[in-house]
Amino acid sequence: MKGKVVSYLAAKKYGFIQGDDGESYFLHFSELLDKKDEGKLVKGSMVHFDPTPTPKGLAAKAISLPLE
């Protein structure tokens, strides 16, 4: 699924993505496929991810940034 980063707290390594389906997904650095892309996780960045339901809500897994 595609989505847009709505927040990312680099110090805490987490944030949120708004998916194309309108839902909010929890984003964690550990799910970023290329850790070098962390600096690109800023508000408004477009990402691809696997939407995954968890006991705490919806989460983004296997997060990647589109090729530039």
Rank of each mutant, 00 (worst) to 15 (best):
A11I: 10
P51Q: 04
T54W: 06
D50Q: 15
L65T: 07
G19I: 02
L33S: 06
K61V: 09
E23T: 07
Y25V: 02
G15V: 03
E23C: 12
K2S: 13
K2H: 14
K2Y: 12
A62M: 10
L9Y: 15
Y25N: 01
E68I: 12
G44N: 07
H48K: 12
S30C: 12
K4M: 12
L65N: 03
A60F: 00
K2E: 07
A11G: 11
K36R: 13
D21N: 08
S45I: 15
S24E: 09
P55N: 09
L67M: 13
M46F: 11
S24T: 15
E38A: 10
V5K: 02
Y14P: 00
S24C: 15
G3T: 01
Q18I: 14
F16D: 02
L65F: 14
F49Q: 00
P53I: 14
V42H: 12
M1H: 06
I63A: 05
V47S: 01
Y8N: 03
F26V: 05
L32Q: 01
V42S: 09
E23P: 02
Y8A: 03
V6M: 12
L41Y: 02
G22I: 02
D37T: 08
S64F: 13
M46W: 11
D20Q: 10
A60S: 03
V42R: 13
K61A: 07
D37F: 08
K40G: 07
L9V: 15
L41N: 01
D20C: 14
A60M: 00
E68A: 12
M46A: 11
G44P: 02
K2R: 13
F49R: 01
A62D: 08
T54K: 05
P55V: 10
K56F: 11
F16T: 06
V47Y: 00
G19M: 02
L65E: 03
D50P: 01
V5L: 07
E38D: 04
H48E: 12
K4H: 13
K40N: 07
I17P: 00
D20M: 09
S24Q: 13
G15R: 00
Q18M: 14
K36H: 12
Y25A: 00
A11S: 13
L67I: 12
V47I: 07
E68K: 11
G44S: 04
Y25W: 02
D20E: 13
E31N: 12
L9E: 13
D50W: 15
A60E: 02
Y25L: 02
P53W: 15
G15N: 00
T54N: 07
K13H: 10
D20K: 05
F26I: 06
A60P: 02
L9F: 15
H48W: 14
K2G: 10
G22H: 05
S24F: 14
E31K: 04
L41R: 01
K12E: 09
F49W: 01
M46D: 08
L65P: 03
D37M: 10
A10P: 15
L67W: 11
K12S: 09
K13M: 06
A59Y: 12
T52K: 13
S30F: 09
D20G: 06
K36D: 12
V42G: 07
V42I: 12
K61E: 04
F29C: 07
S64Y: 14
A62K: 14
